[in-house]
Amino acid sequence: MSLIALAPGVLYFPGAVNSFVVVGRVMDALLVDTGLDDSHARKLLRAVAEAGLTPSGILNTHSHADHHGGNAFILKRFPELKVFAPPLENAVITHPILEPLTLFGARPPRELQSKFLLAPPSPARLAPEPGLCRIGGADIELIEVAGHASLMYAVRVGEVLYAADALFGPDALGKHPLTFCADSRLQKQSAARLEQLPGVRTVLPGHGDPTDDLSGLVAVNLAAYERTTEAVMDAVDGGEASVDELLARVCDALDVTMTNAGAVVLNRAVVSAHLTELLEAGRVGMKVTGNKLIFSAQA
């Protein structure tokens, strides 16, 4: 598979996670997000070489394993490359055990140490602050889009926007109705803010195909995020319950079947994020009863 051009000097490598490639000085290539594993990274490097480009740096938009799992393989081939990431996210990329540890709340059991939650470590440093900057010889604009992760950057080059996981393609939203987020309120705000960017001709989500309809993509995502909030609220309206009990109700309502521990901890985090949003909006209350943390609807 080859790199696909979005604009002169702006390309991407399609996959379960898209890798964004920006050509810098001469034929240098900044690699933005390296995929889940060695397999994706190997194919990405092959496509970059076939295009006559040489990797000049790595930018990870956030610290989820499917966006930096290919770093280690690429660094074995190009050990001189520097890895950049947003604040907090750089710490997780450097110490990946923080991802499953945070989701589980303690040292994670073996089942939560799969490649989907625990990528190989790579030494990440702080990316520049949002705005225009140069990384790996490539001139880009970093845009803060926190919410899906504690902090995340979208990347703009001219008329092309790589939205990372601030926006998902419609197929991805349909496949994963409980779209992951660390902060559902910020997730919605970040998506809405992207729609206000002037002059964007093409937008590439982290998961999905490129489109020239930024407004349409934002609308689909905002509707999906709000649908999750209301599903959590409906679950709370069903009677006071713990997070795990609410998770089961939400999954039943959205026709989600969880078959492994990874899915449970990820979806539990999503429900928790939306509960926090509802708590802050005064729609839900929280109390401790019978040694349980219980949520209930507010009158």
Rank of each mutant, 00 (worst) to 15 (best):
C251I: 00
Y12G: 00
Q196F: 03
G57R: 02
R185V: 03
L142M: 10
R201D: 02
F78H: 13
D37M: 00
Q298Y: 10
H148C: 03
V157E: 05
S242D: 04
P86M: 01
C181P: 03
G52T: 09
A164Q: 05
G136F: 11
L204H: 04
L81R: 06
L293F: 12
E141T: 03
K43C: 07
L11H: 08
L254Y: 10
A219E: 13
A281N: 08
P86W: 01
S114F: 02
A261E: 15
T102L: 05
S114P: 10
L194V: 00
R268W: 00
S296M: 12
L167V: 06
E159P: 11
A106G: 12
T102S: 12
S242A: 03
A253D: 15
K287Q: 08
S2I: 11
A172D: 12
G136E: 09
A223K: 15
P130M: 05
F13K: 05
H67T: 03
A241H: 02
G35A: 03
A106N: 14
E277L: 05
R193F: 12
S114D: 14
A72Q: 08
D165G: 04
P120K: 01
G290H: 07
L186S: 10
V256G: 13
E144I: 00
E226I: 02
L279C: 09
N60C: 15
M233F: 15
Y162F: 13
L6H: 14
T259A: 07
G238H: 07
A235H: 12
L293Y: 11
G158H: 05
V243C: 01
N291D: 06
S272N: 13
D38P: 09
A191C: 07
A49T: 06
S114M: 01
A49W: 03
L98Y: 15
L44S: 12
S296T: 14
L36Y: 09
L217C: 04
A273I: 05
E50K: 08
